[in-house]
Design a protein around this nucleic acid. Sequence first.
DNA 1: GTGCAACTTAAAGTCGACTTGAGGTCAAGC
DNA 2: GCTTGACCTCAAGTCGACTTTAAGTTGCAC
Lengths: 182, 182
Amino acid sequence: MTAHPDGRRTPGPHHSDPLTIGQLADRSGLAASALRYYESLGLIHATRTSGGQRRYTRGTLRRIAFVRAAQRVGLSLDEAKVALDRLPERPAPSRAEWDRVAESWQDRIDEQIAELQRLKAKLTGCIGCGCLSLSRCALYNAADRAGAAGPGARYLLTRDPDTGPEPVPSDVETCGTRRGGH
Amino acid sequence: MTAHPDGRRTPGPHHSDPLTIGQLADRSGLAASALRYYESLGLIHATRTSGGQRRYTRGTLRRIAFVRAAQRVGLSLDEAKVALDRLPERPAPSRAEWDRVAESWQDRIDEQIAELQRLKAKLTGCIGCGCLSLSRCALYNAADRAGAAGPGARYLLTRDPDTGPEPVPSDVETCGTRRGGH
DNA sequence: GTGCAACTTAAAGTCGACTTGAGGTCAAGC
DNA sequence: GCTTGACCTCAAGTCGACTTTAAGTTGCAC
């Protein structure tokens, strides 16, 4: 009911710290195999019973939630690990520590949102029009930027944007509203 | 690198239709191997010279831009193909036809933006706090929803959300701002 | 008509993120 | 003590989206 290894205000009796891999799988929504995989990458850690079975602390759930959130913003597991490695594990990370790590994503998220908004704005205006002259089409460029956005964001594949030349200024396609319409 | 070969910018009527795979690669930013791969999936098509080399029409650039945009909103190539298959190829698709196809993404994009905004809103508030009781934590649920969002969005991996039970209602963790702090 | 870059195919390889399988061990209820 | 199910390890397999490799062909400038 008091301080726990975990450090959270623990009211009462019936909360059981050590989770088996099956329990952790149930509660995290990941398969046990995925949890072992995460462990092999150093994303989470487990103690072992005398018989060699894994036992997890509750804090592991937070680490997993963090990893999953990281994936959502386009980070690879390796990148998530880099972020997680900045957290202490022995004394459970304080809220401030989590915050600091999480903050670094705000930019990432904002970037992605902006990215999508650009895409949305250009989509009907551009893909349907006669354009897509690649040097000028905003749609293309939006996608291209994303490719350059970072090594971890494997949303976009793309080669380098040095496509440079694009030597045809008077191309057929004009990006914009040549067609009056909309 | 040589001046002209591809015949673009020929005097007279604007177009210089047939692009070689190398030219298409340069202009689309994809590797030639990727273009062959796309062709093998039926995403793009090419005619052949007498010698068997591929020649593409300009419309192909638009199809590629479409595919890349589709990937950005989380669609797989197979899904992009389904969308593209709704377009005629012989008579080049009209703007209205492109629009209709592109429109179906607006929702997808909005969904993704909303998703990210939820994530952002909850991130500092939730991951840093003591919570992450999986049944109640908004962060977890956000991620979970995403997993269910669609078969093509392999952003999130996840098993099914039937994780159901979560049998500890009076769990330690309370999502919210128990800690006063921030 | 030659030289060489750009092209061709088919098959195999890569990468991230896991899953599956084989063969064996642990823990708990009867 | 036995059974059963959850667990263990290690190796290999899978999936999507490509890339790489090998060995051969085309096409265009000179």
